[in-house]
């Protein structure tokens, strides 16, 4: 049995996860909490949000995210990869900058629309 706090939404439910019993989750206020509790103990994942270099616009940085959660253990490697990414304006929101980031199946996408200068 392990107690963790759910981070899916601002409510912050106190979850109890029973590893010995198929990772059964109790204390969750919604189905997303149950899914979080299961995955957090077996393969914790996080959505990565950061910025990459931007050229051709007044702004110097473009905000980005992974379009799904990636394994927590890959966050550092992903950050190192982001240092090499350069986006060129114009950029649309949701535009894929790196497909299948580090083989995680997640795409790195832009989170802000940047018009051409």
């Amino acid at each position: 049995m392990k107690e963790i706090i759910c981070i899916v939404c601002p409510r912050g439910c106190q979850l109890t996860v029973d590893e010995a019993n198929g990772y059964a989750v109790t204390g969750n206020g919604c189905p997303r909490g149950a899914a979080y509790g299961k995955s957090e103990l077996q393969n914790p994942t996080r959505v990565l949000t950061s910025t990459v270099r931007l050229t051709g616009a007044a702004l110097r940085r473009l905000p980005v995210k992974t379009d799904r959660a990636i394994p927590k253990g890959k966050l550092r490697e992903a950050m190192a990869l982001l240092d090499t990414v350069v986006a060129h304006a114009p950029v649309t929101e949701g535009q894929v900058l790196v497909a299948d980031l580090l083989g995680t199946g997640a795409n790195l996408v832009a989170t802000r629309e940047i018009p051409a200068e």
């Binding site: 601002p10 959505v47 949000t49 950061s50 910025t51 905000p63 995210k65 929101e93 989170t111 802000r112």
Partner: peptide, 25 residues
């Protein structure tokens, strides 16, 4: 919101998890 590039916005308003710039967008 433009500098709040992390996610977690919009669960109540849009029923999905957005970053700050996406919510503003």
């Amino acid at each position: 919101l433009n500098q709040c590039i992390h996610n977690g916005f919009g669960l109540h308003r849009f029923s999905e998890e957005l970053t700050g710039p996406e919510y503003a967008g």
